[in-house]
Design a protein around this nucleic acid. Structure first.
Length: 574
DNA sequence: GCCGTTTTCGGCCCGACTGTTTTCAGTCG
């Protein structure tokens, strides 16, 4: 069992216990443990087999630790099996329906013996739900609506979809008369790779015109709620957004609150309480009831003697302690990036010429550009043979002459790691190239050991400088390869091979948690857009955000180097 | 069930909104 499967097991336990009506804090503990396992950068199975203490994992104590051990030893969990006998597992699926929680699920189960979404739908259509206690015609209709929206929804929205959509919302809201400020909040502001919905915080004295503009947009399919302070909508594409309006003098506390994460806010509030302050979205309130208002987030953190924490770091991964000690890292910014080391041209599957890419790189202020077209075995990407690589060198030399010394153009490759583990080019060719990126595109569903072995083989080659998008995942449709990340990271550290954070928002691979661990292990990171078109260079900020979520500073990222530094590193590597 | 820079016991966030009510329960974030 991997971390995700363990986490899913504990999520299921939490769901079933909640329907059963267990005390809420037990349920919260299981949910917390599940979240923690997903975010844990090491394989818990390996940890256990090494004999390390499972209770070192945040949110895992004796009881849950024992359950993890049982799952890893036997693949089963007696506790869960007993629970499933009491509460049918299919009830947990019903919790997915919006506006339907454990109490209602239990009610339908107790009163009408409903145990599946299909049965629930049938009962609602037949008007059997409306007469139950606390139910009525509207609630019944809402449930049918919810079941329908479940089929429309595709789960979490990829960052690359949500972020541009949010910019449209911000533009609309900021144009409303009386609006002092509007910002995204929630997981989108924290730049998580997927987001549940778009959260927007607005600073305005009068909320009515804002709410009106928000719910009356032509792209809104349904208004899910509309109030004075908060409204939420579902768009035609099934995605959702919600908006809060607060007076300017309370905007700081409100934005801090709405940005989360939940766990980060819990830590912050604990700290506030120790100082005799209760923190809410409204204010910091003293014990005597007087309010301290904050119009900016910086004031909120300052009042608590904390450094302001960048939203990308607010995941309760040690940032609150660091903010207390005034030891937060000085995070990387897009302005620090001066090199793009992974681009494609018309020589393979790119849409622009080398010349065009070079001109665009210069325009964007880059000092170094690597042209790294696909290699021969990636047929679908029109990969280059050794012969075509040599022809390409001639064109690169021409472009070099045209652009002069202002831009260092590196001739490289994005070389395929073949299904059998071999590399596409011989060492002689690799040594001749300026820069070598190796990546997996094919046969990524191989068993963990096999696919890991292929990657390790690439890492061991002294000519391979960078591993691109290590797992080859695509958000939201494709899971990445089942790599043994502990082994990969260790090999990258030993061979001084850089690991790429691919900035394409469908990739964001290396993931933040592994990037953080890579930094701790002294591995160099490189952030590349993998541009196939000029516009793809705009992806950079997504990659930088992912690096910031990994606490990356300028010094950890190769793209911040001067051409001289980059050349020196490459030359030292064979 | 987990956690601890005052705690190994006693906390663990809480308010907005909806739909049901006749002052509140359920859900959500």
């Amino acid at each position: 069992m991997n971390n995700k499967q363990l986490a899913d097991t504990f999520s299921l336990i939490a769901d079933l216990m909640q329907i059963k009506g267990e005390v809420i804090y037990k349920i919260l503990a299981y949910r917390k443990a599940a979240d923690s396992l997903v975010a844990y950068p090491r394989s818990v199975k390996d940890l256990y087999e090494e004999g390390s203490k499972l209770t070192d994992i945040p949110g895992v104590g004796k009881a849950i630790g024992d359950k993890i051990a049982e799952l890893l030893d036997t693949g089963k969990l007696e506790f869960l099996e007993k629970l499933q006998k009491e509460v049918p597992t299919s009830l947990a699926d019903m919790l997915e329906i919006p506006d339907l929680g454990p109490k209602k699920v239990k009610l339908f189960w107790d009163e009408l013996n409903i145990t599946s979404i299909e049965q629930l739908k049938k009962a609602a259509e037949e008007g059997k739900l409306r007469d139950l206690a606390g139910m009525g015609p509207k609630s019944e209709a809402k449930i049918l609506d919810g079941i329908e929206s479940l089929s429309r929804r595709t789960g979490r929205t990829p960052l690359g979809v949500a972020w541009p959509a949010a910019q449209v919302q911000l533009e609309l809201i900021r144009a409303v008369k009386g609006v002092k400020a509007a910002e995204v909040a929630g997981s989108l502001r924290r730049m998580k790779d997927t987001v549940g919905d778009i959260d927007i915080l607005v600073s305005a004295v009068d909320s009515a015109p804002v709410m009106k503009a928000f719910v009356e947009q032509p792209t809104v399919a349904r208004v899910l709620g509309e109030g004075e302070i908060k409204s939420s909508v579902e768009f035609q594409d099934g995605s959702r957004a919600q908006i809060w309006v607060h007076p300017p003098e309370r905007f700081g506390t409100a934005l801090q609150y709405a940005t989360g994460s939940k766990d980060h806010n819990v830590r912050i509030r604990e700290l506030a309480l120790k100082k005799g302050l209760s923190l809410s979205d409204q204010a910091l309130t003293k014990e005597d009831g007087t309010e301290i208002l904050a119009s900016t987030e910086e004031e909120v953190y300052k009042k608590l003697d904390l450094e302001w924490v960048a939203p990308e770091m607010r995941e309760d991964r040690g940032e609150v302690q660091a903010a207390k000690d005034k030891k937060l890292p000085k995070l990387l910014t897009t302005k620090d990036i001066r090199a793009e080391l992974h681009t494609h041209s018309t020589w393979s599957d790119g849409k622009v010429s080398i010349q065009q890419m070079a001109e665009e790189a210069l325009k964007r202020g880059y000092k170094t550009l690597a042209i790294t077209d696909h290699s021969v075995s990636l047929g679908i990407g029109n990969g280059l043979s050794v012969e075509r690589l040599h022809e390409q060198r001639q064109e690169i030399d021409k472009v070099r002459k045209k652009v002069g010394d202002t831009l260092l153009i590196l001739h490289g490759t994005e070389m395929e790691i073949r299904a059998d583990g071999n590399l596409d080019f011989d060492n002689e060719t690799l040594a001749w190239l300026d820069i070598v990126i190796a990546s997996l595109h094919v046969s990524i569903r191989q068993p963990r050991e096999q696919v890991t072995e292929r990657m390790l083989n690439a890492l061991q080659n002294p000519h391979v400088d960078i591993i691109a998008h290590p797992t080859n995942r695509l958000i939201p449709d494709r899971e990445g390869a089942d790599l043994d990340m502990d082994a990969i990271l260790q090999a990258a550290a030993e061979t001084d091979t850089a690991l790429e954070i691919n900035a394409n928002p469908r990739r964001l691979d290396l993931e933040d948690i592994y990037a953080r661990r890579a930094i701790e292990l002294g591995i160099k990171l490189v952030i590349n857009t993998d541009a196939h078109r000029l516009k793809h260079l705009d992806f950079l900020h997504y990659g930088v955000a992912t690096a910031r979520r990994a606490w990356a500073e300028k010094k950890h990222v190769i793209n911040t180097w001067t051409p001289k530094q980059i050349e020196k590193w490459l030359k030292g590597r064979g």
